[in-house]
């Protein structure tokens, strides 16, 4: 749960982090149905994770509800020396699919807030009709699902780097 403010509207977002491993796919797909916004995350230090994004997009198109908002994220922007995927490549891909694009770092907090705010904004825009007339008053719960391209690294205490912005 996280509360952020967009256009003076307080929005409560619920974030799901789905498992990226291939073998969980049949199950994670089912979770898409409840999402209003989706982050597609790859790792800029992994070419492979970048290439998997296309598959994610098509999964999302197939299983997520109509009108779900997507944003492409290239994470680990702090790891410049290990970079395998260029910024332009990310931009290019995002453009192809009509998504916004951010390079982020969970370590340095780069663009974390921005990308969350942006996705929330997109979701709000998509639901503009329902919001009309409620203007500044609504505080809504939106569900954003976060899809991460998994690099097969073991999950563990290392994850704590992510909590720094929470």
């Amino acid at each position: 749960m996280k509360t952020i403010e967009v256009d003076g509207i307080k929005v409560r977002i619920q974030i799901w982090d789905t498992a990226g491993q291939e073998r969980y796919q049949t199950i994670t797909k089912q979770y898409y149905r409840r999402a209003q916004g989706i982050f597609l995350v790859y790792d800029i230090s992994s070419e492979r994770s970048y290439q998997h994004i296309m598959k994610w997009v098509s999964d999302v198109d197939e299983y997520a509800p109509e009108g779900v908002q997507k944003i492409l994220i290239g994470n680990k922007a702090d790891e410049e020396q290990k970079r395998q995927v260029g910024r332009e490549q990310g931009q290019q891909l995002a453009k192809e699919y009509g998504m916004d694009f951010y390079e982020t770092s969970a370590c340095t907090n780069l663009n974390i807030k921005e990308s969350f705010t942006r996705l929330t904004e997109l979701v709000l825009q998509a639901h503009r009709k329902e919001l009309d007339g409620l203007q500044t008053r609504a505080s809504n719960e939106l569900a954003l699902a976060e899809l991460e391209e998994d690099e097969g690294k073991p999950e563990g205490p290392a994850n704590s780097s992510k909590t720094c912005w929470c």
């Binding site: 403010e5 307080k10 409560r12 919001l131 409620l134 500044t136 008053r137 609504a138 505080s139 809504n140």
Partner: peptide, 8 residues
């Protein structure tokens, strides 16, 4: 949506 209240 309105139920969520009105803050700020």
């Amino acid at each position: 949506l309105g139920d969520q209240g009105s803050w700020g």
